[in-house]
Simulated assay, not measured.
Amino acid sequence: MNPSERIDAACSFLLQSPPGEINDVLNDVRNIISDDDSLHEGVLPALKEYNLTQFMTVDVPGSDHQAIISEAARVAATQEGQERFIDPRSKTSFLFDHLSLEASDSQPAEPDADSEPFRAALEKAALTYLSAHFHDGVAAVFAAKDSTNKFTLQVVANKYNPANYWAGRWRSEYTIDLNENTVRGKILVNVHYYEQGNVQLSTSHNVSLSLPTAVVTASPSASTSKILALIEDEEGKYQTSLNDTYQEMGEKTFKGLRRALPVTKQKIDWDRALGPYKLGQELASSKGMFGNS
């Protein structure tokens, strides 16, 4: 395998990294490349893509909360090729290093005066929702660059438990368009269980909601509270569907694959064999992995 093929393989591994394990994967692929300078240069585009799509979180300089690194948060690139991201909550922008996962050079960033009242109200409602349903989650609301009536709401919650060999990430993203009276988005869930095996779950769910005219024309506070109530209902239904799916898998699907007697001539202890799949039930429980209910 030539150096270029090794870099491509390393990038592929990085993009498939389970939640919270990208540094472990990066350390492992160092053995494939055996050249740190080439590795860092070659995999940087993959690291950028991973951080943006996975909603990587970072401490905001001078603030007591975290910000989300995403396409919606990206505002500009410097002449040196570094990227700046915005944190609307603290009204600042900052540089982000995709390799060290650190923010720096925080600067004031004035919001758009026309979109800010609704954006701020939506952010307040989102933070209330976050505190009620997610443990250690992060939420951010961004005003669209091309419209004063379009907003992006993002939520990410991570749960890492390496001592018990599992990790998980919940992401949801919604575009609220007040011109079209719609909320469109998606929910993405990733789970990795690796005790005496390697089981990964990656699933997504699309959301499309219509907003009644009364909701759009209400005050920003009333309107955004109703929008979050609709999102809460949609995420609750999806969580219930995940729980039902895992219940059926545990009770029917996997047991249906068994032999009458395995090679050991002993009956399978399904309480032990189904351990990895019980993690999925934890994911969908109200206070399981992410605290969503």
Rank of each mutant, 00 (worst) to 15 (best):
residue 186 K to Y: 01
residue 222 A to R: 15
residue 285 S to R: 15
residue 188 L to I: 07
residue 155 V to K: 04
residue 146 D to C: 01
residue 214 A to C: 03
residue 151 F to W: 06
residue 129 Y to N: 11
residue 244 D to I: 06
residue 208 S to Y: 10
residue 114 D to G: 04
residue 58 V to M: 03
residue 249 M to K: 04
residue 10 A to W: 08
residue 282 E to V: 01
residue 26 L to Y: 15
residue 230 L to T: 00
residue 31 N to E: 10
residue 157 A to P: 05
residue 38 S to M: 13
residue 256 G to V: 03
residue 289 M to N: 15
residue 149 N to C: 05
residue 168 G to C: 04
residue 263 V to K: 07
residue 128 T to L: 12
residue 198 N to L: 06
residue 19 P to H: 07
residue 98 H to E: 07
residue 120 A to W: 10
residue 122 L to I: 11
residue 137 G to C: 08
residue 120 A to F: 12
residue 3 P to R: 12
residue 69 I to G: 12
residue 99 L to Q: 14
residue 179 N to I: 12
residue 145 K to Q: 05
residue 121 A to F: 12
residue 231 I to H: 01
residue 259 R to V: 05
residue 248 E to W: 05
residue 254 F to S: 04
residue 178 L to T: 15
residue 66 Q to F: 06
residue 245 T to M: 08
residue 259 R to K: 10
residue 133 H to G: 06
residue 153 L to Q: 05
residue 52 L to W: 03
residue 83 E to D: 15
residue 254 F to R: 05
residue 68 I to Q: 10
residue 72 A to V: 09
residue 156 V to I: 07
residue 150 K to Q: 13
residue 26 L to R: 15
residue 73 A to V: 07
residue 91 K to P: 00
residue 244 D to F: 01
residue 289 M to C: 15
residue 14 L to M: 11
residue 105 D to E: 13
residue 141 V to H: 03
residue 58 V to S: 05
residue 14 L to F: 09
residue 68 I to M: 11
residue 181 N to H: 07
residue 71 E to H: 13
residue 57 T to W: 04
residue 10 A to V: 09
residue 139 A to K: 02
residue 59 D to Q: 11
residue 220 P to L: 14
residue 7 I to L: 13
residue 185 G to W: 02
residue 183 V to W: 02
residue 257 L to C: 04
residue 210 S to V: 11
residue 245 T to A: 08
residue 102 E to Y: 06
residue 100 S to C: 01
residue 131 S to I: 01
residue 136 D to G: 13
residue 157 A to G: 11
residue 135 H to K: 10
residue 168 G to S: 08
residue 265 K to H: 04
residue 58 V to L: 02
residue 89 R to P: 02
residue 251 E to N: 11
residue 262 P to N: 04
residue 243 N to T: 06
residue 175 T to M: 11
residue 156 V to E: 01
residue 54 Q to E: 12
residue 232 E to G: 07
residue 123 E to P: 03
residue 91 K to N: 07
residue 40 H to M: 13
residue 287 K to Y: 14
residue 92 T to P: 00
residue 177 D to M: 13
residue 72 A to N: 12
residue 238 Y to K: 02
residue 240 T to S: 07
residue 125 A to W: 09
residue 249 M to V: 10
residue 222 A to Q: 15
residue 292 N to Y: 11
residue 137 G to S: 09
residue 285 S to M: 12
residue 261 L to H: 02
residue 14 L to D: 08
residue 218 A to M: 13
residue 65 H to M: 10
residue 90 S to M: 00
residue 263 V to C: 00
residue 260 A to R: 01
residue 207 V to F: 12
residue 199 V to K: 07
residue 139 A to N: 03
residue 145 K to P: 00
residue 22 I to K: 02
residue 141 V to I: 06
residue 278 K to Q: 08
residue 54 Q to S: 14
